[in-house]
Amino acid sequence: MDKKLVHNLLFIAVVAVTGMVVENIYLLQIMTFIGINTLLALGLNMLMGYAGQVSLGHGAFYGIGAYATAYLSGTLGISPWAALVCAIVLSVAVAFVVGRPTLKLSGYYLGMGTLGFGMIVHILFREAGSITGGASGFVGIPMLTLGPLSFEGGRNYFYLVWTVVFGAIFLCKRIIDSKTGRALAAIHGRENAAVALGVDAHALKLNIFMFSAALGAMAGFLYAHFVLFISPDSFGFMASVKMVTMVVIGGMANVWGALIGAVVITLLPEVLHGFADHEMIVFGLILMGVMIVMPQGLTQGVIERYARYKKRA
């Protein structure tokens, strides 16, 4: 059998068994958050890792997804599933409008442009109190149900989130392994050569920006209906930075890197709770340390170190 297929099936089996075996609600919650963060990292990884375009404002799409479903299903009372469609459409539309001028920029200028966009959306969440609940947050997001199936319990939600993650990984792999994926890698490697070969770089970047916005909105939707309370601070500058960090720590241009980044960045604060007031310091130091020692990300960094160790032994 195909080796890749075996790996994928093994991964799905591990997640499925974990969901069945683990009884502790807290652990299930953490793993659900890992799933949501993996979605975020996957989307941004397509943009940063494959297309090579930095975004420091992706928290905005996460927030748009969360607030759209909160308002539509919480305030207006329409079905959350219909709200999901609206949230994704809205997020993609925003990505289109913002991406068109912004993706013409490059390097630090692109970073600053996306940062500015993220901050503006964050401020809108805070200031449009009549819709978003303002700085104090939005209360009253309904729980998800699908026919007789309720996603109230930790376990059902865990499976819902991870099913979506599998779907997203599948989509990402299909895109990477296609003409579009090749063109993305070409833009990342040498943009002017790619353009000279007829790749419409701007349109392609915009496409992938919109795709990652859709994944971000999906994650926002899952987050909102999971925690049932959202506030602007979950989608601010630090949220965007956290997403970038997941991608870079895991290792760019690697679907599994996104997963590893999400695991590390979700678990780290939980592990560091023991440090109490010093939590921030330790978190920041670990972040810096990993980037200084392994700028290519944990996945690649560990593999290289292991290879070097084996060579010496």
Binding site: V248, G284, L287
Partner: peptide, 18 residues
């Protein structure tokens, strides 16, 4: 790499704030 530098300086800002 610019992205690593962004993360390192953001990490430093978290440490300083902490």
């Amino acid at each position: 790499h610019p992205i690593s530098l962004v993360i390192i300086t953001v990490g430093a800002s978290i440490v300083f704030r902490g």
